[in-house]
């Protein structure tokens, strides 16, 4: 468990992180006066306790109440959770989010690795191409989502529909067609995300010793053998990091569905076709001020992300570690 936690974020190789705290040779330092060091720790601890630890625990408490932001919270036991698991909108949000997460993580990983292998070189041209794919990671955010909203306009002055019409196809209401909603979210997220993944893979590829490829070439390994036997296994830590952080990040998706699909009456687009867990949390918590119920949504999100992270770590565990 201790190592799992560490590898979640550092993950490159477990060996690079020393726990230090429990080991080393600090014995001669124990007697030193700790007042000043502890004072230096205080600002962080206070902020961390007030804005991270307390909220996490408080939201667990609120999830067992009917708090509505006005009257005092009343303890209702697991009522919110019971209601949640019978709530069709929750299942809609969960399904949409799951589909979104799987598509985005797979596409970002595959495209990111492909781009890193194609444009990973040192030449100026490769550097320019990497900058192009990396651009959305830098100049992205809300500004570019507004542009996407404009590009995806349903009417015939939307550029995508103009392209369709040149090919003799009827215009599509891109953001108003329920069957397309999650696909649109995936397109925008992969458009913005593959460049960042590419950069991570470029760093991962550069860390692989050239000698391995040279030795393999001497032994007569084909390029595809080199890829499957050397590149991919050695990229495992990078891959694990990308899948875990990508999964956590994609589960929290809010900006894209909120901005592209949010309307006056609904946050989830037509028929909740683009409703995700966090937009649902927002809708319940801040649209209707059902803060107890929204806290239950938040904790379900937390538990799902937690379990998925553990599964990822287990699956990503190198074979030799499993036997230890």
């Amino acid at each position: 468990m201790r190592n799992d936690n560490l590898r979640l974020t550092a993950s490159a190789d477990a060996g690079s992180i020393q726990m230090g705290m429990g080991s080393g040779k600090p014995a001669r330092r124990v007697r030193r006066n700790l007042t000043v060091p502890l004072m230096m720790l205080v600002p962080f601890i206070v902020l961390f306790a007030a804005f991270v630890l307390y909220p996490v625990i408080n939201s667990l408490y609120l999830s067992f109440t009917d708090y509505n932001a006005i009257s005092q919270p009343r303890f209702t036991g697991i009522e919110n959770y019971v209601a949640l698991f019978q709530d069709p909108r929750f299942y809609k949000a969960l399904g949409n989010t799951a589909l979104f997460v799987v598509s985005v993580v797979v596409l970002n990983t595959v495209l990111g690795l492909t781009l890193a292998m194609v444009f990973g070189g040192q030449s100026l041209w490769d550097q320019i191409m990497r900058a192009v794919f990396f651009l959305p990671a830098v100049a992205g955010g809300i500004a570019i989502l507004a542009v996407w909203k404009w590009i995806l306009s349903g009417e015939s002055y939307g550029i995508l529909n103009a392209v369709r019409e040149t090919f003799g196809l009827d215009p599509i209401v891109w953001l108003g067609t329920p069957s397309l909603a999650v696909t649109m979210l995936v397109v925008v997220a992969v458009w913005g995300g593959m460049g960042g993944t590419m950069i991570l893979f470029v760093a991962g590829l550069r860390a692989i010793p050239t000698e391995l490829y040279e030795a393999a070439a001497i032994d007569g390994a084909t390029p595809s053998q080199r890829f499957w036997r050397i590149t991919l296994p050695l990229l495992r830590p990078t891959m694990l990091y990308i899948v875990i952080t990508g999964t956590i990040g994609a589960f929290q998706v809010f900006n894209e569905p909120y901005l592209l699909f949010g309307g006056v009456s609904s946050v989830g687009g037509l028929l909740d076709s683009a409703l995700t867990l966090v937009t649902y949390l927002y809708d319940r918590g801040f649209g209707r001020f059902q803060l107890g119920y929204a806290s239950a949504v938040a904790w379900v999100l937390f538990i799902i992300v937690f379990i998925l992270t553990l599964i990822n770590l287990r699956v990503g565990e190198p074979e030799d570690r499993a036997s230890k």
């Binding site: 936690n5 979640l8 974020t9 961390f48 007030a50 804005f51 991270v52 630890l53 307390y54 909220p55 996490v56 408080n58 939201s59 609120l62 932001a69 956590i248 589960f251 929290q252 809010f254 966090v278 949390l281 918590g285 801040f286 803060l291 929204a294 806290s295 938040a298 904790w299 999100l301 937390f302 992300v305 937690f306 992270t309």
Partner: peptide, 16 residues
């Protein structure tokens, strides 16, 4: 704490 999706904290933090 890094495993916690930060949205879990937004409701209590908003109330604060």
């Amino acid at each position: 704490s890094m495993m916690i999706p930060w949205q879990v904290t937004i409701i209590p933090n908003f109330l604060t």
